[in-house]
């Protein structure tokens, strides 16, 4: 329960950054924080007390294992997150090349 709430606090910190910060770098970092907290929450949800990791080993027989399904989903989600970060960084670098600033309040001409 406490761990769920702390994970949610981490998510809210990232959300606060996305809403209030004005430069693109901080917004990218906030999105990364939101992604971390979501991944971590799914894995915390999958944990079983005293259980073994879901990889069989030769010569040992384990009865209880943690839930492998959220682990498989999060593994792909981490990769997608890095791809999105790369896309956002590329956009930010291009915008800097055009406007010479990361401040989104100054990038007005984007509106058209």
């Amino acid at each position: 329960m406490t761990i769920y709430l702390m994970c949610f606090i981490l998510f809210l910190v990232g959300f606060y950054g996305v809403i209030t910060k004005r430069d693109l770098v901080k917004i990218i970092l906030s999105l990364a924080i939101m992604g971390y907290s979501t991944n971590l929450f799914l894995i915390i949800f999958a944990y079983r007390t005293g259980a073994h990791y879901p990889i069989l080993e030769k010569g040992t027989s384990v009865t209880a294992m943690v839930d492998p399904l959220p682990q498989a989903l999060v593994l792909t989600s981490i990769v997608i997150e890095l791809g999105i970060t790369a896309l956002l960084v590329a956009l930010a670098v291009r915008l800097y090349g055009k406007y010479k600033t990361f401040d989104i309040t100054k990038i007005r001409r984007l509106l058209g």
Binding site: V79, L82, A86, A90, V93, G97
Partner: peptide, 20 residues
């Protein structure tokens, strides 16, 4: 797939910096 795509991003970023 992962190795090539991730390296290409950094490669293009470096090329962009040099052009700039």
């Amino acid at each position: 797939k992962v190795a090539m795509s991730l390296f290409l991003v950094v490669w293009v970023m470096a090329a962009f910096k040099i052009e700039e």
